[in-house]
């Protein structure tokens, strides 16, 4: 791996006596599409919150975009993008207003905002939509806009938490093309999904079981190791080992 943008060692988060994340260790390189899989309750969301600087680890160490996950949570937030399963956009603001709002939050200058907005509209092929309320946009448009807004400040890493849930099969595929493009341009993509075909699109995939990373490799190597036809089969083999319920 050339340049490492996420590096964590024995990262652990306890809630009382419950070890939600139990000593995870891994590195993610620049420009990778890293699939972060796990059953409900395996600890994915808790792990992701620590990586995004939203939650302080109980123990362990690590860096995200070069900043310490224990002490520099605020600086991490400025260098990453985040898009959640449910929209991070404001339905009662227009497309342009949403973009201006996020540009302001990320601290872009007026000039940068104009340039990034023009690029975004060109890439998404949005024209008449720019003055529409986001609430009135079709779901597929919202999803792509949310992704573009999450990467407005050219972050080193973008975290996507189930970005394609409920989306039609064509839009889901267009969304992944957007991910491919973004990764090819050097932004690291860290993504969770329940669609196992999407796991096949990742450069590498980790599977969490009971708070621990049980497997981490390229989809091809994982399928070979578990003698499985698909990532779906790999996931089932691993998730069935889970001792704790969700």
């Amino acid at each position: 791996m050339n340049e490492t943008v996420i590096s964590v060692r024995n990262l652990t988060k306890c809630f009382g006596s419950f070890r939600a994340v139990d000593g995870i260790t891994f590195d993610v390189g620049r420009g990778e599409i890293f699939g972060f899989l796990g059953a409900n309750g395996a600890g994915k969301t808790t792990a992701m919150r620590m990586l995004c600087g939203l939650s302080c680890p109980t123990s362990g160490s690590g860096t995200v975009a070069g900043f310490d996950v224990l002490r520099e949570g605020e600086r991490i937030k400025r260098h990453i993008g985040y898009m959640s399963q449910r929209f991070s956009l404001y339905d009662d603001l227009t497309v342009l207003e949403n973009i201006r709002l996020y540009a302001g939050i990320y601290g872009l200058s007026h000039r940068q905002t104009l340039r990034r907005t023009a690029e975004l509209f060109a890439r998404l092929d949005f024209r008449k939509e720019r003055n529409q309320l986001v609430g009135a946009l079709p779901l597929g448009y919202k999803q792509k806009l949310a992704f573009s807004v999450a990467t407005l400040h050219s972050p080193e890493i973008v975290f996507l938490d189930e970005p394609t849930g409920g989306v039609d099969p064509l839009t889901r595929r267009q969304f992944w093309e957007l991910i491919y493009e973004t990764a090819a341009a050097g932004t690291t993509v860290f993504v969770t999904t329940h669609y196992m075909d999407e796991a096949e699109y990742c450069s590498r995939v980790s599977v969490m079981v009971d708070g621990q990373i049980r497997a981490l490799d390229t989809p091809a190597a994982l399928k070979c190791r578990f003698r499985a036809e698909s990532m779906d089969e790999v996931f089932r083999l691993l998730a069935r080992e889970a001792k704790r319920g969700d």
């Binding site: 059953a39 409900n40 399963q85 189930e162 996931f235 089932r236």
Partner: peptide, 10 residues
Amino acid sequence: TTGVDAVSRS
């Protein structure tokens, strides 16, 4: 089964 993992869905 929306938002449910592949094993629980099955």
